[in-house]
Every structure is written in C-alpha cells, then in structure tokens.
Design a protein around this nucleic acid. Structure first.
Length: 273
DNA sequence: AAGAAGTCCTGGGCGC
DNA sequence: TGCGCCCAGGACTTCT
C-alpha cells in the first residue's frame, strides 16, 4: 500500500541518515525466497558507502560505489525502521543493517510481514533497464505534460490506466481512487474516452493529492509506518478510499465500492460521472 | 499482443 | 474462545 507519498517519505528519512554512511555489517535474520543468495547479497553491500537514496515510482534506490545499487520495494508491508543497539529482532524482521557515519554506528531493520517486498542488488545496466520502463514521475512535470501522458487509445478503464506504472509512476490504489474522485471521473470510464479537459483536471488532481499526502507523511490505511514507526497523517483526509458506506464529503451520498482492475475501488456515484 | 486473470503472503476481522 | 473463511493488493507471470 505504500505508494509515491509513502515511499517518498521513507526516502527522505533514509537519505537524511544514510547519505554518506558506510554499511559495516549486514545480518540476514530470516532467509527465505527473498534471499536465495544471501552470501552474495551481504558481500555486495559490506563496506560500501551509500552515496544517495533515490526514488523512482515506488522503488527505493540506494546508490552505492562501484556502479551498483540496492533497490528496495516495500510492496504491501515492507518497511525500514531505525532501531537501537538493544533492539531484539521480531518474527518478520528479515535484515538488520549496521551502518556507520561520523564514527557512530546505527541500525536499520528491513521487515516485511507478507514478504511481497524485496531488496535486490543491481548493476548499472540492470538499474538503467528497470528505471527506463517506468512512466513519468507525476510531480516532476507540469499538469499539462502529465495530462499528455494520460492520452491513450487503450480500451482499459481509467482506473487500470492510472495503476499502470509504465504509464504513470508511483500511483497505486489509494491515490488512483482519490484523484478520480477529486476530478469527478468514474473509475470505470474507458481511458480513451476522457476529454482533453477531463485529462487535464485529472492530472491536476493527481498532483494535488500526491503533494498533500507527502505534506502529511503519507497515508496509513493498514500497515504503513515510516522509518520511526510513525503513521502518516493523510488517512483522515481521504475522500473515498476505505470509506464505503460513508457519506461523500461533497454531496453526502454514500460511497460505493466495487472490484475493478483486480482492486477494490471506491467512488461517489453522484460526484463522479 | 493487449488485457485479464492468477500468483505470491500473512494477519485481522468476521460469522457461528 | 476458537475455528475457518475471506479480504487487503503491487507487480510479475501466465493465460486467452
């Protein structure tokens, strides 16, 4: 459920402490499907200096020396949490990083209850290939440019289009529903049938909702917490997601929910045409 | 070959 | 109180 605002929140917090830090030790606590080659994983990281922590779509990228990077995807329940030396790892903690900066050692845990997330070492070429396949970052261009990238001849619903990372990077189920409500567009509408005006409005609302959520450190609908274990503040500002049966904040009609593009989809039957 | 469906995983909520 | 069922969903893989 972490989407662009949540991943960006984590990125900023990681960057603050990891930029320039050295990885002094890596403990694999539970090695399952996620770490088939754990010796190689540890060896690739040990003694490396982290140059920067970046984000592309929902992917976190620790840029390391020697043309390599550690990529991390939180998927549903992945999380990075800073802990102290006395921390006792829990059942779902998979990796404990020992880091060093300015002669001080600190610790970072990678945990993931559902094990959908991953940490993966990639070389320069592989990273380029991964990053190239993502669509534009919604907050890096103008609303007009974003609207242009939503132009399509696809038969898919607009909801499915918004979830496609090759079309638009970083939007997931929550912000797709929220942006569509703000823009007054039914999620079931065929993407190709949106007018120029609707696409522009939708692009604006995508940018608005993402920016507002980043300001609140994201949404904690279920499991998401930041690197300090803190929940995001945007949950109370959601207009449709998770609000089935509750009144629309605009017209008081009860919010509906249905399955669309394999996802639970919430919308207002009156405000969204 | 686009687009839909299946897949991975676990905890929490629910009904009985 | 406990059991079993169902749901949450990102993005890769498999099917139509």
């Amino acid at each position: 459920m972490p989407e662009l605002p949540e991943v960006e929140t984590v990125r900023r917090q990681l960057a603050h402490r990891l930029n320039g830090a050295q990885i002094s030790r890596v403990e694999i606590l539970h090695s399952g499907r996620e770490f088939p080659k754990k010796e190689a994983f540890v060896k690739a990281l040990i003694d490396q200096r982290i140059q920067s922590v970046d984000r592309r779509a929902k992917l976190l990228i620790w840029r390391l020396q020697k043309d390599a990077a550690l990529t991390a995807h939180l998927k549903m329940t992945g999380r990075f949490v800073f802990v102290d030396a006395a921390y006792v790892p829990g059942k779902h903690d998979h990796v404990l990083f020992h880091l060093k900066a300015k002669k001080k050692t600190f610790f970072l845990v990678w945990a993931d209850v559902r094990k959908f997330g991953f940490l993966k070492i990639v070389g320069k070429q592989e990273l380029e290939d991964i990053l190239r396949d993502y669509g534009p970052e919604p907050l890096e261009g103008s609303a007009k440019e974003l609207a242009e990238s939503l132009k399509t001849s696809s038969k898919r619903s607009i909801k499915a289009l918004l979830l496609d990372q090759a079309v638009l990077a970083g939007v997931g189920n929550i912000y797709a529903d929220e942006a569509l409500h703000r823009a007054g567009i039914r999620p079931t509408r065929r993407a190709a049938r949106l007018s120029l005006k609707e696409r522009f409005r939708l692009a604006q609302e995508i940018q608005n909702v993402l920016r507002e959520s980043i300001d609140q450190q994201g949404t904690s609908a279920n499991d998401y917490v930041d690197t300090n274990g803190q929940r995001g503040g945007f949950l109370d500002l959601l207009r449709v997601y998770g609000r089935r049966g509750e009144p629309c904040r605009t017209c008081r009609t009860l919010i509906k929910k249905r399955m669309l593009a394999q996802r639970g989809t919430c919308y207002c039957p009156v405000c969204q045409k």
